[in-house]
């Protein structure tokens, strides 16, 4: 009897372990999670985009205790990929209202190729650049050490590890190691891969980021300012997630609200399309107070004919 109970216990433990590895939740775990939710601290944090279709595909949002890979197809898309990873951090900050430093682990080749993150631009993304630590290791091994140390120290709310291409020394074993660290620490690691191919890794989510034409700047009255370049827009493709089919979204990152929106199709760009002088769109003024009044009272109208 006791033996059977022990076996049952063991089986349950194994099941739980598998579920944890897969990132699914068992009924018991779900119950435990509910308990911790009631007590005020949610066990597994997810970053919701507030876009139902995207959140559903990610089963509730971006998990924040694992590796999220952000991939760009070529170096010329590095700006978009960088922007998207910063906007994720900005979203985290806006959501959690958590102030905390962030670590950027730069790749020296990418820095030489596409420049280093610039504080002025970061500030516009809604992140105080003084809360960003910029690490510039010489070798990839050092970068991995830094990422691991940063996750372990739990000092940063987010860590962005920049790599380019698909380096051999950052294979499945290394990414598995980092993923376990992230899981243990409950801290997110954003892996920013410039000009890389899809490859097997331990990242829970992989997103392909491509730039998209920005929308126009919106004016206070809700209309758009023709010919202007507004908030950044990204084409996001979910390459790896719980969702079986790859999904694409066009997201606009609102710099002021620190919030993602689904971008409307920028069908009609109005650059050079309106005439330079479109003519009066206002009604002519009439009956204004400052018109000179006729002298004297009207006694009788003039004869019409």
């Amino acid at each position: 009897m006791a033996h059977a109970a022990a076996a049952q216990e063991k089986l349950f433990a194994l099941r739980e372990q598998i579920a944890r590895l897969e990132g699914r939740s068992l009924p018991a775990m779900a119950a435990a999670k509910m308990e911790s939710f009631v007590s005020g601290s949610s066990g597994e944090e997810r970053l919701s985009f507030d876009i139902p279709a995207l959140d559903d595909a990610l089963s509730g949002g971006l998990p924040l205790d694992c590796i999220t890979e952000i991939r760009s197809g070529s170096f010329s898309d590095a700006g978009a990929a960088t922007g998207f990873s910063f906007s994720l951090v900005g979203l985290m900050k806006a959501r959690k209202a958590a102030a905390g430093p962030m670590l950027w682990i730069a790749d020296s080749f990418s820095s030489g190729e596409m420049g280093i993150p610039y504080a002025g631009g970061i500030r516009q993304f809604g992140i105080d650049p003084r809360a960003i630590f910029h690490a510039s290791p010489r070798r990839l091994e050092d970068a991995l050490w830094l990422a691991e140390g940063a996750l372990e120290s739990k000092a940063f709310i987010a860590t962005i590890l920049e790599v380019h291409g698909n380096p051999k020394s950052f294979g499945l074993a290394e990414s598995r190691r980092l993923s376990l660290r992230a899981k243990a620490a409950g801290q997110p690691l954003f892996l920013l891969r410039h000009a890389g191919e899809e490859e097997a890794s331990s990242a829970s989510v992989r997103l392909l980021v491509e730039p998209a034409p920005a929308l126009e700047r919106s004016l206070p009255d809700g209309s758009m300012l023709g010919g202007s370049i507004g908030h950044p827009v990204f084409n996001i493709t979910l390459e790896k997630s719980r969702n079986p089919a790859p999904l694409s979204f066009r997201l606009e990152w609102n710099l002021d609200d620190r919030q993602f929106h689904l971008a409307r199709d920028p069908g009609k760009s109005s650059f050079h399309k309106w005439p330079a002088h479109s003519g009066a769109s206002l009604s002519a003024s009439a009956d204004r107070q400052d018109r000179p009044k006729a002298v004297g009272a009207v006694v009788a109208f003039e004869r019409a004919s």
């Binding site: 630590f133 910029h134 690490a135 830094l146």
Partner: peptide, 20 residues
């Protein structure tokens, strides 16, 4: 955080981890 910065600076030199 201070501990992490110290460890990184000790290992890779003070120029490795920087702030804006």
């Amino acid at each position: 955080l201070a501990d992490f910065i110290d460890r990184v600076s000790a290992r890779f030199g003070a120029g490795c981890i920087q702030v804006y």
